[in-house]
Design a protein around this nucleic acid. Structure first.
Length: 884
RNA sequence: GGGCGAUUGGCUCAGUGGUAGAGCGCCUCGUUCACACCGAGGAGGUCACUGGUUCGAACCCAGUAUCGCCCACCA
């Protein structure tokens, strides 16, 4: 048996001898070829390539603190198919891999794994050894976690991520991703931090980044500000409470409805629509609030909706975003009562002056909004200011996507980056960028436009967390120790990355940290998207490797999921627009969801039941890739094991059919690829059909339609196996009877196999490489993508319909035997074959092959028929003995 | 409330104006001379519904229903 190990069987450029194994198998192909590709550096990026030759991919960095699930396998396969196709088209493919280890998920994992927690006020400890090292899956209790400095904490994040990343890489290699593994990045890595800080400082210098103290969405669990892009509207049970406010002119009560009675002490006005007849007489008057007796104006504003609740609302600072709008536009006072911890502030506000009101507030102080609500409602009941009983309602509330309590609105100082949310010109420019970008599929474009048109504020990029990229900024402290936020101190770009909590600003010394007249670090870190939005710059060598950057940027492709168009895709466009005034890539390929059999989005928990590695081991990587490649971009796909089995069958068929096609002729005779040998009409017709397939598949892949390319190739391949191969195999064997006919069949088979392997290579990289190694030099993955022209030359003026016509006639002969319930090898001693009149010429051209494949040993009367199908009649079948 | 997809045989899906397709599953056979991780043959659909355009509609237009998703919606 031939030596298959590519590590040892380096062969000369022209292989004289086929090394086709007696038995073919997919077993072990993944390990074998991954090792070979890796050793050859087959997918290494040649950084001397000119920009026009390069096809660069802004690979999505998977979150390493989570686990990969089948959805990842699905979408990353789509990208790899594109990468392999482009490489075969002659492009130098820049295909890196990133690891997203930045942000909250890693923080939590590190806390549990090493038993530490971050305390940014602590100094860095050299050579720190964490108290735990993985704890058998058990999390270290928060009370047992040792506080460490931010730098120590980040070091542990990086260390643990590196371990996770090895497992991820192993999976991707097994799946056959043609990534250049020398080009990886981490979103918390030094380069990513330097790039994120440099880009931020440039935004700051240009006025695109700014700081503001303003009411904003706040998660009380994580105690951090949250951006619009991280919101999720969820159903949340609530109740309308009808509450009486009292007119100060003695005119009676005004009833409003609220779902948040606990905010009564934060009420600053009652507001109705200016055209609402019911409340015209009240505008300009004042009322006092129930329980607290605070005097409030009744105002008009068009944002009030007459058909909502009572049509008149209480405006609090702040219950919702409409309150913020009213507060801003009507210049209302600020009377916040909910603190950053989600509890009512401890001190009784000074705007509550009535004794009863102050006494009640004292009961609310320190309570969560939930229990404060119960207290207020009880108070309203006692005082008779609650009209009727609360009416249950289902409402939508904003949640942080990772949180489980509704967001509050809290005033805080935060960093923002302009994204068009407050600036029509910028918004229009970003919409134009979206229009320039090629979305695949096209309908995903509306999600981008929807999002940009719906922006209601700039991008909030600061987070009150630890494991992220720190803002590279310090503030001078005045004589009282108060920070001067207006004039931040910044480092030189060349000093980046820095951590302001451990590094000193120029001109200061560490002992001045926190001291009056000294300096203080900005305490915040950047939002994870503030780093991820720079992924093409991080991996492309921006600021650190200008030569590389000029060859890969702007990139060609951004592959990603549809759920992060508003975050990752949009924020990357924003950063690129601000920095370069151009798109970061020309095209975006958006993958759909994987649905479980219940048609629900496959959740991580469910996905973990079926581990990706287990899938690859059970079905083989080519089979799983086939399943993934069978689904169009942007379309949700079912998790379907059946489709993987079909893929496995296809991969095995590729091995077996190839082995057969290579078996004709002497073993030491080279397989001919010479089109001059292809002389028989049916052989030429087959190549004409293959030329059509090449054209269709190529056009489909150019249009990011890998499913169409696979489908036409696969359909041709099965017909090739079932009909063509059967029709010509006797002729291909019989070199002595008909040397020219045998040579024609053998060359056609060689050319077809060579073409088909290349067409299948992007989807089935292992099976095609395996076959390629039997008879060709080099790797199929560095072979040129096939073109139709040489096939057309070989085919001449042959009509591709000959194969179909002969195939249909062969099927008619088979049907006779099938209905007679005899073996397909049974000879036919006489038969009348009726074929469509239009196909008669084609069948005649293939008649000798047809007789051989159908085992017609006697007379075959060919008759032209009226209808469109081929039928065999009056067949006389030979006996079993005649088979031999 | 605005929008985007989807709706084709039991299942998963192709099919953008010209006589309904594939694979799986099912039924009937066959088979070890490429392939039992197999081969051959067969049955099975008024293309969600209602109108319209057209010589002709699964496909184009209008509307309806169901499902999924995006955006908006906290009084």
């Amino acid at each position: 048996m031939a030596e298959l190990n590519p590590l040892t069987s380096r062969v000369p450029a022209t292989r004289a001898v086929r090394e086709v194994p007696d038995r073919v198998s997919l077993d072990g192909v993944e390990e074998r070829w991954d090792a070979s590709w890796s050793q050859q550096g087959l997918y290494a990026f040649d950084r001397t390539a000119a920009r026009e030759q390069v096809y660069s991919i802004d690979t999505p960095p998977p979150t390493v603190s989570g686990s990969l699930h089948v959805g990842h396998v699905f979408s990353y396969t789509h990208t790899d198919v594109v990468a392999r196709y482009r490489r075969m088209r002659g492009a130098e493919v820049f295909y890196p891999m990133g690891w997203d280890d930045n942000g909250l998920p890693t923080e939590r994992r590190v806390q549990n794994y090493y038993g530490v927690r971050c305390d940014p006020s602590l100094p860095y400890v050299e050579g720190f050894v964490p108290p735990h090292q993985g704890t058998d899956g058990k999390a270290v209790k928060p009370t047992d976690q040792v506080p460490v400095s931010r730098r120590n904490f980040i070091e542990l994040c990086v260390r643990l991520s590196a371990e996770d990343e090895q497992q991820f890489e192993a999976l991707w290699r097994r799946l056959g991703l043609s990534v250049d593994w020398s080009r990886t990045y981490q979103t918390i890595g030094e380069r990513a931090r330097a790039v994120a800080q440099a880009a931020f400082l440039r935004n700051l210098a240009r006025g695109e980044a700014y700081q503001a103290e303003a009411p904003g969405l706040w998660d009380v669990t994580f105690q951090t500000a949250v951006a619009q892009a991280e919101l999720e509207a969820r159903d949340y049970p609530g109740a309308y409470h009808r509450v009486a406010f009292h007119r100060t002119d003695g005119g009676g009560d005004v009833h409003i409805e609220t779902t948040r009675p606990e905010l009564l002490p934060a009420c600053v006005a009652l507001i109705a629509h200016p055209d609402d007849e019911r409340y015209q007489h009240l505008f300009g008057s004042t009322v006092t609030s129930p329980l607290f007796g605070v005097e409030l104006p009744v105002l008009a504003h068009p944002a009030a909706e007459p058909d909502k609740g009572a049509g008149i609302a209480m405006c609090c600072t702040f219950g919702d975003l409409t309150d913020v709008q009213w507060w801003r536009e009507l210049r209302l006072p600020t009377r916040s009562v909910v603190g950053r911890d989600g509890r009512l502030q401890r001190e009784t506000p000074d705007w509550i002056t009535a004794d009863g009101g102050r006494a009640l507030y004292a009961q609310l102080a320190g309570k969560t909004t939930f229990s404060a609500r119960e207290t207020v409602v009880a108070g309203l009941r006692d005082s008779g200011e609650l009209a009727g009983e609360p009416v249950a309602t289902q409402r939508k509330a904003n949640f942080y996507e990772k949180g489980d309590k509704p967001l509050e609105i809290v005033t805080s100082r935060q960093w923002y980056i302009r994204n068009g949310g407050r600036d029509e010109d910028l918004r229009a420019a970003l919409l134009t960028r979206g229009a320039e970008l090629g979305f695949h599929p096209e309908f995903m474009r509306v999600r981008y436009e929807n999002w940009v048109n719906g922006l209601n504020g700039d991008w909030l990029v600061s987070r009150q967390r630890f494991f992220g990229v720190p803002f590279p900024v310090w503030y001078r402290l005045d004589e009282d120790g108060s920070p001067d936020h207006g004039n931040p101190l910044v480092p030189a770009e060349s000093a980046l990355p820095i951590d302001p909590s451990t590094d000193c600003p120029e001109g200061f010394t560490e002992d001045q940290r926190g001291a009056p007249g000294g300096f203080a670090a900005d305490p915040d870190v950047m939002d994870t998207w503030a780093t991820s939005s720079l992924s093409p710059l991080i991996v492309g060598g921006w600021l650190s490797d200008d030569d590389l950057f000029s060859r890969v940027y702007p990139m060609d492709l951004r592959p990603q999921g549809q759920d992060i168009i508003r975050t990752w895709l949009f924020s990357t466009v924003v950063r690129s627009h601000l920095e370069f005034g151009a798109l970061p890539w020309s095209d975006a390929a958006i993958s759909g969801w994987i649905l479980d059999p219940d048609r629900k989005k496959m959740s991580k928990s469910k996905g973990n039941v079926v581990t990706p590695m287990g899938l690859l081991e059970e079905h083989g990587s080519d089979a799983v890739r086939y399943w993934a490649a069978s689904a169009k971009l942007g379309t949700d796909a079912a998790f379907e094991v059946g489709q993987m089995k079909i893929g496995r069958r296809l991969a095995i068929k590729v091995l077996n059919a190839s082995k057969f096609a290579l078996s004709f002729g002497a073993a030491d005779e080279p397989v001919s690829l010479d089109p001059a040998h292809v002389t028989r009409p049916i052989d030429r017709a087959m190549l004409a059909g293959l030329a059509d397939v090449v054209e269709t598949a190529t056009a489909a892949l150019e249009a990011y339609d890998h499913t169409r390319a696979l489908e036409v190739t696969e359909t041709f391949f099965w017909t090739f196996c079932d009909d063509y191969l059967e029709l010509v195999k006797d002729r291909a064997y019989a070199a002595t009877d008909d040397p020219a006919g045998a040579a024609s069949a053998r060359a056609a088979l060689g050319i077809a196999l060579d073409t088909l392997l290349r067409l299948f290579a992007p989807v089935l990289p292992f099976a095609t490489e395996e076959v390629w190694s039997w008879w060709r030099e080099g790797s199929v993955h560095r072979a040129a993508w096939p073109t139709a022209e040489p096939l057309r030359v070989a085919a001449g003026d042959a009509d591709a319909g000959v194969v179909a016509a002969a195939g249909a006639a062969l099927a008619a002969l088979r049907k006779v035997k099938s209905e007679a319930k005899v073996s397909m090898r049974t000879p036919i001693t006489a038969v009348t074959l009726t074929v469509p009149a239009a196909a008669r010429t084609s069948v005649e051209l293939a008649l000798t092959d047809l007789r051989a494949a159908g085992r017609v040993t006697g007379t075959l009367d060919l008759v032209s028929g009226e209808d469109g199908s081929s039928v065999a009649r009056d067949a006389e079948l030979g006996t079993a003995e005649q088979r031999a």
